[in-house]
């Protein structure tokens, strides 16, 4: 009974934190959108509008109401997914975002998969062979991961693997010859191609995906391996590890079943944060790779001063980002019976 109540309490605390953080984010985007620009009315009616047109537009936009009422209106709009119309594409922003988001998701997901599948074993090896080469490798990866600009690494990757070695496809999501060959179902091009049995397209799409995903994956790898190392060093020094050895457990079992299982809770947080970081990093990466995702949508809108699109994209990234934070906290609880 008591534990059920405490679980409910924890969940409600998490949800409250999530709600407050969301509110904070929306307040910031609201302020950026409504308060900072010179005059949002002018953006709608143009510079030379007569005063009565101007006033009408002002009232229509609700700008005559007090700021807090405007904020409530804004919250309502966001809840309904109304981010206004994009000046650049003249579509509703929400439709644009729905169209481009899967491409970003595809990129960040593969990047995280690369980071997790290489980073965890490497971090474990670094902790087990502390002071030896895997440890040094993780340290170097960490240093570079925190020192290399993601967009520059992307450029260098293109230069080497595409232009010089020809191992991968170039910028874009798929070669021009394969454009629009498959109908969009999931929005994830490779999946769509496989669903239609277009193996050639899937292969081509993969050759375009692998380089940007690897670039993002490198940063994920640097972060995850470094954190795995420090969690594992901590776990391996605990008394229960000695107990496992006393029981005659093999080193493999001690490391993977006992130590890593205990590091799983904080690692879940790290992985979720790294995923969120990649979504953000995709803004710069997509520009380099002409990747038609949310990041490029935001940056392209930026240059056109298309504030509806920019703020809509910011809110969506923010929601995903904060949700991942929430998800990480919940996962950490699931993996650790002490906090359940």
């Amino acid at each position: 009974m008591a534990s059920a109540r405490s679980t409910a309490k924890l969940v409600s605390a998490e949800v409250t934190t999530f709600a407050i953080t969301m509110l904070g984010l929306l307040l910031v985007t609201f302020l950026i959108g409504r308060v900072i620009p010179i005059d949002p009315v002018l953006a709608v009616v143009g510079d030379r509008a007569p005063p009565d047109v101007y006033d009408k537009a002002r009232i229509a936009l609700g700008l005559d109401k007090p700021l807090w009422q405007q904020f409530l209106t804004y919250l309502g709009q966001v809840a309904r997914g109304e981010f206004g119309t994009s000046v650049m594409t003249s579509n509703p922003v929400i439709l644009d975002i729905k169209r481009v988001f899967p491409a970003t998701l595809e990129l960040a997901t593969l990047g995280t998969l690369i980071g997790v599948s290489l980073g965890i074993p490497l971090g474990v090896a670094a902790a087990v062979y502390k002071g030896r080469w895997p440890d040094n490798l993780v340290r170097i990866l960490g240093l570079f991961g925190y020192s290399i600009p993601v967009f520059w690494l992307g450029l260098m990757g293109l230069l080497l693997f595409y232009a010089h070695l020809g191992w991968v496809g170039g910028p874009g999501r798929v070669s021009v010859a394969f454009d629009d060959l498959v109908t969009t179902k999931t929005g994830v091009l490779i999946l769509d191609a496989i669903l239609e049995g277009e193996w050639e397209v899937a292969r081509d799409a993969f050759s375009h995906l692998i380089l940007p995903a690897s670039v993002l994956g490198f940063f994920s790898l640097a972060y995850i391996s470094r954190m795995t190392r420090s969690f594992m060093i901590n776990e391996l020094s605990q008394a229960y590890i000695l107990t496992a050895r006393v029981k005659g457990a093999s080193e493999t079992r001690v490391i993977w079943r006992h130590a890593l299982r205990n590091a799983a809770a904080p690692l879940a947080t790290v992985i979720a944060l790294s995923y969120a970081g990649l979504l953000e990093g995709s803004v710069l990466t997509e520009t380099i790779f002409a990747w038609p995702g949310l990041g490029r949508y935001i940056t392209a809108s930026l240059l056109q001063a298309d504030m509806n699109a920019v703020l809509g994209g910011t809110v969506v990234v923010g929601v995903v980002f904060i949700s991942l934070n929430l998800f990480a906290d919940i996962m950490a609880r699931v993996f650790d019976p002490r906090t359940r």
């Binding site: 953080t21 984010l25 620009p37 803004v283 710069l284 920019v310 910011t314 990234v317």
Partner: peptide, 22 residues
């Protein structure tokens, strides 16, 4: 609380939006 809220923001994107507005 405020600190935690700002920590949970996507920093780069928010910086982008700021600069876009300013």
């Amino acid at each position: 609380r405020v600190t935690d809220i700002v920590l949970a923001f996507p920093k780069l994107i928010l910086a982008l939006a700021f600069v876009a507005a300013l």
